[in-house]
Amino acid sequence: MARMKFLCDAERCIECNACVTACKNENEVPWGVNRRRVVTLNDGVPGEKSISVACMHCTDAPCAAVCPVDCFYTTDDGIVLHDKDLCIGCGYCFYACPFGAPQYPKQEAFGVRGKMDKCTFCAGGPNDDNSDAEYSKYGANRVAEGKLPACAEMCSTKALLAGDGDMVADIYRERVMRRSGRPQTWGWDKAYGAGV
């Protein structure tokens, strides 16, 4: 069975932010919310590295573990999704997530945050596939159409890979062997366990 995973190859990422733009465009993400963002490590120092970060759809998702209303569910291929109708905007998932993935569209008086928003691996939510309700709440459901996340499919250097974890790992392994480098699967240990 396929296990969907993201992997960003830091050696290839050129910090163009096309993945961020593709995500916002595909899912009509509201102002102030970034489901994906590019982080540069040691910015300005020679040898700086950039990585594209979003929800990693963890194997044992800490967001789901701490959710007080259990609004999260996981598909058979490992995509972590949530129901905005159940979400109470408490923010626990934001504190629990090691990647800072959960986002909130509002910042109002009395700490009102609104419903949590995060990367869905372009797999929408619990409404009917590609219905207006699903699109307005969760964005596009590309997976239901047999497509993969827009961010990875738009990546010009193919730094960002999204798909079956075995295929992603095979490609990355080949790259590392070809360039005689050391594997740096950023975030994989945390998201998918130490054995990956």
Binding site: A2, Y73, D77, I79, G124, L148
Partner: peptide, 21 residues
């Protein structure tokens, strides 16, 4: 989980669906 059932769950995990992806 007491939310709406996701129709995607019917397809995800099937061999044809995975093969397409």
């Amino acid at each position: 989980y007491k939310g709406e059932p996701d129709p995607l769950l019917d397809d995800s995990g099937t061999e044809s669906f995975n093969e397409a992806l």
